[in-house]
């Protein structure tokens, strides 16, 4: 989780990823952020996030992003 937080924080230092629960629904993360996050996560975790995975439920919280990474690693 700490590794994920540091990746997210590097992209958007102004966001409190630990506590925000509606990163997408509240419009905190925008499309450019999403692409930056996806690219960094793909590289860091050796996964392949698909366009179909770009659902608000997968990116609204740091826990949801973590769960997405775990699911893709286990696939």
């Amino acid at each position: 989780m700490e590794k994920l937080l540091s990746i997210l924080q590097a992209i958007r230092p102004d966001v409190d990823f630990r506590h925000e629960k509606k990163l997408i629904d509240d419009g905190i993360l925008h499309s450019f952020d999403i692409i930056a996050i996806v690219n960094d996560l793909n590289d860091a975790y050796d996964i392949e996030i698909d366009v179909a995975d770009l659902e608000p439920d997968n990116f609204n919280t740091v826990e949801a992003i973590h769960a997405l990474i775990e699911r893709l690693q286990n696939e």
Partner: peptide, 19 residues
């Protein structure tokens, strides 16, 4: 345009190669 063009193009293999 974001969901049906921007995301698919940005996450395409071609964009990754260019990146």
């Amino acid at each position: 345009f974001r969901d049906y063009v921007f995301y698919p193009l940005s996450m395409s293999k071609a964009a990754q190669r260019v990146g």
